[in-house]
Design a protein around this nucleic acid. Structure first.
Length: 272
DNA sequence: CCTACAACCTGTTCGC
DNA sequence: TGCGAACAGGTTGTAG
């Protein structure tokens, strides 16, 4: 479901809903969601207060008095605030708080994960596979150029790989390729330094705008307050198959790149 | 180092 | 209407 802007939106909502609350019970309905011994997980969270909530890539990090609860929504994970522990279909984990409210984790496909990590060291190791954040001071066209200049993989596969830039998924990868007027299939080593500058600019502009818009809502995804994002109104190519390109009026086409549905303008993003 | 592809799951949409 | 295939905003592991 969510890419970086959607995760950021979920976190903003969770901050209002559960920050400062103390976990008084944890119900695990589906053990496979928990990446460690379920009793260890439950015991570690009990009586802990949620101090803060942060993001790294597409991961949500609940900062507790002692340790961290790290969660990943994958394709369809969502949170709902409820006033009961009674679960509906597809709810796999329930957090009970001291004030009688409950946070339900809902995930149709059960792809999401949660884990408790004891300290900074464990947290760092757990997230060590992730690349740079788009708002890191080091993030730049030159930084990406150096990472990519010898790679033969496609631009889209580079953008989707969390080890280079953390947080980009299928929607924003398409939008970034269009922003830079590059075909998603173009090999990284054929992209010039100035083109990487444009890509970097696109990453920042698009993710910033998407966050400000509350993310992109398609396939009826809603955040835990039931509020929809608005960035789908700003999409240039994704999901616009057959509709005219906003730049040259050529119909947007849908194809497959790195096994993912991919939208592009065949004129603005010519293969060269 | 890269690509292709299966796997993890369930629900919805598409094509015949 | 019915049924199977394809597909869905993600990640990981395997094989070649």
């Amino acid at each position: 479901m969510p890419e970086l802007p959607e995760v950021q939106t979920v976190i903003a909502t969770l901050m209002r809903q559960i920050k400062g609350k103390t976990i008084t019970d944890v119900h695990v309905i589906t053990p496979s969601i928990i990446q460690q011994d379920v009793e260890t997980f439950k015991h570690a969270l009990l009586q802990q207060t949620i101090i803060d909530i942060k993001r790294r890539g597409k991961y949500i990090i609940l900062i507790l008095e002692k340790g961290f609860c790290v969660m990943h929504l994958r394709m369809e994970g969502r949170f709902f605030i409820e006033t009961t522990s009674a679960v509906k279909k597809h709810v796999h984990v329930v957090f009970e708080f001291h004030d009688g409210t409950y946070l339900h984790y809902h995930d149709t496909r059960k792809f999401g994960h949660m884990v408790y990590l004891v300290d900074e060291t464990q947290l760092h190791d757990y997230l060590s596979h992730l690349g740079i954040e788009f708002d890191d001071p080091q993030f730049s066209g030159d930084y990406l150029y150096e990472l990519a200049k010898h790679r033969k993989r496609s631009l889209k596969s580079f953008l989707l790989a969390q080890e280079f830039i953390a947080g980009i998924g299928n929607i924003y990868a398409d939008e970034i390729c269009f922003y830079a007027r590059l075909h998603p299939d173009v090999a990284c080593h054929k992209i010039s330094r100035s083109q990487w500058a444009l890509i970097a600019q696109g990453v920042v502009e698009i993710l910033e705008k998407a966050i400000a818009s509350g993310g992109t809502t398609i396939y009826s995804y809603i955040n835990s307050e039931g509020i929809s994002g608005r960035f789908q109104l700003s999409l240039q190519v994704h999901l616009r198959q057959g509709e005219p390109c906003y730049v040259c009026q050529t119909p947007i086409i849908k194809t497959v790149v790195v096994n993912r549905g991919t939208y592009l303008c065949p004129v603005c993003q010519r293969k060269r």
